[in-house]
Amino acid sequence: MEIKSGLQIERTIKPYLIGLALAVILTAIPFGLVAAGSLPRQTTLIIIAGFAVVQILVHLTFFLHIDFRTTPRENLVALAFAVVLIFIMVGGSLWIMFDLYRRMMV
């Protein structure tokens, strides 16, 4: 009997340890860069952002076990939709608010 709920999935500790190791690296580097202050500010910010995106993917893959095989498709669609919407809502808001700041000193 095919039961898709997460209950019957055999779990090993491997993905969690890999995830932990990757997350530690992806955290230590940005923290280290900020502590050292050796790179220009803009570069550091870009690295922080990039590493954050990668670390989120690491968490999704190794802690939440999201993949294109076993994760139900509706969950993936919901996640993709949320990402797109958050992009529109946050991006749009920042565009509007900084535009208003420039023009109206708000």
Partner: peptide, 21 residues
């Protein structure tokens, strides 16, 4: 619980680290 850890990654990446750069 894992979701909250993801949010924390964004928090230190948007709040703490940029604030201290």
């Amino acid at each position: 619980w894992h979701f909250l850890d993801i949010i924390w990654v964004v928090i230190f990446s948007v709040v703490y680290l940029p604030g201290l750069v």
